[in-house]
Write a protein that binds this DNA or RNA. Structure first.
Ligand SMILES: [Mn+2]
Ligand SMILES: [Mn+2]
Ligand SMILES: [Mn+2]
Ligand SMILES: [Mn+2]
Lengths: 221, 221
DNA sequence: TTACACATTTAGACAAGTCTAAAAATAAGA
DNA sequence: TCTTATTTTTAGACTTGTCTAAATGTGTAA
């Protein structure tokens, strides 16, 4: 059963929408995610439902069927492996890998992906710290917290970002914050929830709540 | 000016047809190359002509315009660089790289290709011995002869193949003939033009004219 | 429980790429 | 040159994915 480029993108969109709190993907949410009109989404949901990739009821939204989940996770696996390739091997900055991976993820060859995985050393996380599902679709979970949940005195290590926009990632570059950067939390301001951090070496920086919220960290002993 | 996957394939087909003896690509030749009906080709030739990528006159066939040549050579450059990646880095056998490169060649990113080229060490030839055009579209030429043109006593080095079918390449694998293999020509049979070769080490093998014709060699002093 | 806003679906149309069958042009042979 | 054979183009239709505008359904707040 060969899926088109477009069908794959819809399935990935539904996966992304329903992977957290949201249980059912509404037409408008999907439209927003794949950047099309609601009318087009309705058509596609009907088609994907007919093909058995999603559960869809008129006016009630869609969820992925088991096959749909399989397709979506494989797509995410491919996307993230390519991102690792682009970042680690071709030295692309982390804010540029997503767009190209968006194309590469649709290349169709199981052998290619298993060899790529191997070539990259079977990485478990992509350049943004997102887990790479294994070939069975299992995601490796990790203890992590949003940086806006920490308290003064705690030591943390940056392990991911929850926002992938080019602007945000470039701003982090500017702050010299990247995956693996270690911080000690110096102060959390009550007034605006801004956080002052001290880098491993010595320099300190202050970030807004907005930034902290989008940084994932894990605690250091 | 963004071209679709399909338009790119047509331009590459016309390039391939017209790169040797044939001066003008006929509708049927293109149809054969891209594996579609002649009617579909006529439509596409009209479109590509309107967009300025080819010169096309009804009933007379098509040739690439300068822009068309540029697109086609860039596509071939991408195709061959990806083949090198698949072969050298991911260790795909040479008979498997073409099909996957057929997809990868359409990935759209100049930066990606220049980084890939660099990562691969700016290779000048692909895994089949075909030259990789540089970013300006120039092909590196090389002294080479078809193996059916050699004479007894000459020493040659395999540098390429003119047939890329999986069957042919697998047959060469079986004969342990690959790029870089050195031979001394032992005998050329008058009767059926079969050729007996001695490998660098010691073993000899006999190949048919059919095979010899499709092997490109360069002479050794 | 009745409006009304908002979300969703339907209707109808369009572009890209494809097909088959029929018509027209060109090439080849007698 | 006249008559076929072959190639190429046109006509008309279909699929996929998209759109806008109109119709319909759902949920909320008076
Ligand atoms: Mn990404
Ligand atoms: Mn994509
Ligand atoms: Mn990522
Ligand atoms: Mn190839």
């Amino acid at each position: 059963m060969l899926l088109t480029f477009t069908e794959e993108n819809y399935l990935k969109a539904i996966f992304k929408i329903t992977e957290r709190a949201v249980k059912v993907a509404s037409t408008n949410m999907v439209a927003e995610q794949v950047n099309t009109s609601a009318a087009s989404v309705t058509d596609m949901l009907k088609k994907l439902s007919d093909k058995g990739y999603i559960n869809y009821e008129k006016y009630k939204g869609a969820t992925l069927s088991p096959t749909g989940v399989k397709v979506a996770t494989q797509l995410i696996r491919k996307h993230r492996l390519w991102e690792v390739f682009l970042h680690d091997k071709l030295k692309f900055p982390w804010e540029q890998v997503h767009e190209i991976a968006e194309q590469l993820e649709h290349i169709n060859s199981d052998d290619l992906i298993s060899r790529l995985d191997n070539f990259l050393g079977n990485p478990r996380f992509d350049p943004h710290g997102d887990p790479i599902p294994n070939s069975e679709g299992k995601f490796m979970l990790r203890n992590q917290t949003s940086l806006d949940m920490v308290h003064s005195g705690q030591r943390v290590l940056v392990v991911g970002v929850t926002q992938h926009s080019v602007d945000f990632l470039k701003y982090l570059n500017q702050l010299k914050v990247k995956l693996g950067t270690a911080f000690k939390v110096m102060a959390v301001t009550d007034y605006d929830k801004s956080i002052t951090l001290e880098k491993d070496g010595a320099e300190t920086l202050t970030i807004t709540h907005q930034v902290a919220k989008n940084l994932l960290v894990k605690f250091q002993k």
